[in-house]
Deep mutational scan, measured.
Amino acid sequence: EFTQISGYVNAFGSQRGSVLTVKVENDEGWTLVEEDFDRADYGSDPEFVAEVSSYLKRNGGIKDLTKVL
């Protein structure tokens, strides 16, 4: 089950073990991109978060400006 990723309007994530599946949706709710990120592939949590965040930004993730990150 996908849940909204904090700080984004149209990005959602689903966690299974160490694998986080993220997706970005358009205004109609269609999935634009979907990608798996395995936490085990990264040396640290900040590196993992930075990679996921960068992916979302590159692929149309819209920041939720009503929330302070």
Rank of each mutant, 00 (worst) to 15 (best):
L32Y: 07
V22F: 02
T66L: 12
A11E: 00
G13N: 03
G17Y: 05
D45M: 09
E35A: 15
S54P: 00
D36S: 15
L65R: 08
V19M: 05
G60F: 09
G13V: 12
G13I: 13
S14A: 12
V68H: 11
W30E: 13
K57V: 09
S6K: 12
T66Y: 11
A50Y: 09
Y55C: 06
Y8T: 06
E35Q: 15
T31Y: 05
S44F: 02
T21K: 09
R58H: 08
F2N: 04
T31W: 06
L56T: 00
T66I: 09
K63T: 10
T3D: 05
A40T: 08
L56Y: 01
K67S: 12
V22Q: 01
G17L: 04
E51S: 12
E25N: 11
K67H: 13
I5R: 04
E34P: 02
T31V: 12
V24M: 02
N26P: 01
Q15I: 13
V9P: 03
F37V: 00
D64F: 09
F37Y: 01
E28T: 09
V52E: 02
L20D: 00
A40S: 10
N26I: 07
N59V: 10
G7R: 05
F2H: 05
I62A: 04
Q15W: 15
G13A: 13
E47V: 05
V24A: 01
V9G: 04
I62M: 07
L32Q: 07
L32I: 12
S18I: 04
D64R: 08
A11T: 02
D36E: 12
G13D: 01
F37R: 01
S44H: 02
L32T: 08
V19C: 07
F12P: 00
S14P: 01
V49K: 09
E1S: 13
L56Q: 00
F12M: 04
L69E: 14
L56M: 00
A50Q: 09
R39Y: 06
K67T: 12
D38F: 03
I5K: 05
Y8A: 05
E1N: 11
Y8K: 06
E34Q: 14
K63L: 15
Q15D: 02
F48Y: 06
G29T: 02
K67G: 14
E28W: 11
Y8M: 05
E25G: 05
L56K: 00
E51F: 11
K23T: 08
G7L: 07
E34F: 10
E1G: 13
G60T: 03
D41R: 09
G60C: 08
S53Q: 14
K23Q: 04
G17H: 03
N59M: 10
F12V: 05
